[in-house]
Design a binder for these strands. Structure first.
Lengths: 347, 347
DNA sequence: GAAGTTCGTGGGACCGCTCCCACGCGGCTT
DNA sequence: AAGCCGCGTGGGAGCGGTCCCACGAACTTC
């Protein structure tokens, strides 16, 4: 029943081509091309004529034609696992995206947003990305056992990650100083006179969660406090996980007087649980979160939290990727950006 | 000093072309093309041979080459004003994007994210989008006086908006039933026995804000309550704006016992202001917000709010746009999706 | 004043596809 | 047995750019 499907559009007025511009300006195609690409080897007279013709005709170069011969697409993909967008504290993606977008825009690059819903889609990604669709790939929320980055590497597609998969990340990546940030959070708690400081970790198959835990340990150690494993409870970056972990901590160490949660969302769960247990925040138990997300500002009491420079991270990712695209191998670096402790009333 | 810039990449292994597939499968180019595009006029034998060759070679069609001749790009742009991403309640963009992305993916379309930072960039957008870069355009956060949609229309570029600019929107658009949602919020307040219900509006150059105000009036009128303009205060979708508006309302009508704010963020500002004035929520003044954003769940007390089906909205936008791309004129419709009142403790 | 440079320029070849026309071949009709 | 139909097929043309080579004019150099 399927009809022959002829191009159904009626009003596809043919856009002017480079040829038309050349004819109008009275020059050859090569000259027009040179003007468009900013080549210096064009006389002022020709350039002016071409520019006028372009303006008059409203000419815009056809990217497909250009891409076909240059083998560049002037666009990069940002790969985002759909499931994580719900999980991550809210400003995370929008912050990164803003930075990435700004960084790319200033280089005239376009941003392709690729949301991955399930494993099947994920598996199709490597072939797809290798098919001359994009010049490079940015990935966020990479798990430690993720192999897509390596596949891309093998296909020699420039790739930059937000965060790293382990402490030896071969690919270019940008991350916040999670360890240092966590350390500063815990030091803040200790400086406030807290004695028994617990922590609620993120899922430990993510390097960021491991780093935050390491920072917690660093701070205790350098304060001369022995790390007590009973004070470490595993969460999963969800509010419910935070509640459960808090419950567990209270069971194990009823006397604890401070908690560092590896995300604000978990911290907000912890606050709820503390309140349910009849404890006051921060009077009885101080709480610090991580991310400085929207919830941090709005829960009661407002949450002290560690802020990551998300926009800057996005921008760095873009810059690193552009370097790598321009000159393979040059972008294989790790960039670490400082965090900042935002002190509010919870600690 | 600028060197001649030869293509600097070293490892750009040439991807297999359609020609290579044809040679390997022992058929002509036309046949391979037919197989790829699912034409029925191919014998099973040829099809099998081609499919095997494709698998063996790991062939992926070059989108630029295809696009050059078909005059389609299989991608659409989502235009997002950067400034608004900070303003809008947080799940808004991610929800819409998720829906859009899902809708496009199922049709094999790609999503180009275009963030617009300032007026200058915005002005460049029409020429850019007309330049064969995308098959269609989705726009969010369109203001009433925005003319870009009309320009796109004039360039015969399929366009779909999130929300409408006025009550006669010529272009295809998808929106939540803002008026009905606001009405249900205010009815809920009245049903709870509240007598003096104020409202904090959004910026009235946005149709959604006007509609929410209209819904507020509807509900009062149909309950037989006269609308008192002193009970209407203008906000701007920010928390500070919400605070200021609340202050103003309290000044004008100290006895009011309920407020409907046109966004959660403004509602949270209102709650802060009420508390500062020594009033309890909901005991003294009930509050309802709009958006059912993250803050709604986390502020104290948790906020009753009107939820929009964001993901579905995104999906509808994608569907509408795809219709319009397939057959011009078919997508010029307005889709209205129902909202849902999420009752929590603030009202 | 002849030979060599430099500079700006035009245009052919080509990138990898899709579209479409023409052709061969087996099965029907008459 | 000759003619016709239609299916499956190969391959030429062309999409709109970039790249690069060759060429003519102006300008040096000896």
């Amino acid at each position: 029943m399927r009809p022959a499907e002829p191009p159904p559009s009626a009003a596809d007025v043919r856009r002017p081509t480079l040829n038309a511009v050349a004819a109008r300006a009275g020059v050859g195609r090569g000259t027009v091309s040179r003007v468009i690409n900013g080549s210096p080897k064009v006389s002022d007279r020709s350039r002016a004529a071409v520019e006028q013709a372009i303006a008059e005709l409203g000419y815009v170069p056809n990217p497909a034609a250009r891409s076909l011969v240059t083998r560049r697409t002037d666009s990069v993909a940002l790969v985002v696992p759909d499931a994580e967008t719900r999980l991550f504290s809210e400003p995370y993606f929008s912050g990164i995206i803003r930075g990435v977008s700004a960084g790319l825009a200033s280089a005239g690059m376009r941003l392709l947003l690729v949301m991955v819903r399930d494993e099947k889609e994920y598996a199709r990604l490597a072939p797809y990305l290798s098919g001359q669709h994009v010049d490079g790939v940015l990935m966020v929320a990479v798990h430690s056992d993720d192999t897509l980055p390596d596949q891309l590497e093998a296909l020699s597609i420039p790739t930059v990650l937000a965060g790293r998969r382990g402490d030896r990340e071969p690919l270019g990546h940008v991350r916040a100083d999670n360890r240092g940030g966590a350390g500063s959070a815990v030091r803040h708690l200790l400086a406030g006179g807290r004695q028994v400081v617990g922590t609620i970790t993120g899922p430990l198959d993510m390097e960021a969660a491991r780093e935050r835990l390491a920072g917690y340990r660093d701070a205790l150690r350098s304060a001369g406090v022995a790390v007590d494993e009973d004070l470490v409870a595993a969460g999963d970056f969800t509010e419910e996980g935070g509640r459960a972990a808090m419950r567990e901590l209270l069971r194990r160490r009823p006397g604890l007087d401070a908690v560092f949660a590896a995300s604000d969302v978990m911290a907000s769960g912890a606050v709820l649980e503390l309140r349910a247990a009849g404890l006051r925040v921060p009077d009885d138990v101080a709480v610090v979160g991580f991310d400085d997300s929207i919830v941090a500002r709005h829960i009661d009491p407002p949450l002290t939290s560690v802020r990551q420079p998300l926009e800057e991270m996005g921008r760095s990712m873009a810059d690193l990727l552009l370097d790598e695209i321009a000159e393979r191998g040059s972008g294989h670096r790790g960039v670490v950006l400082e965090t900042r402790l935002v002190v509010r009333e919870s600690a």
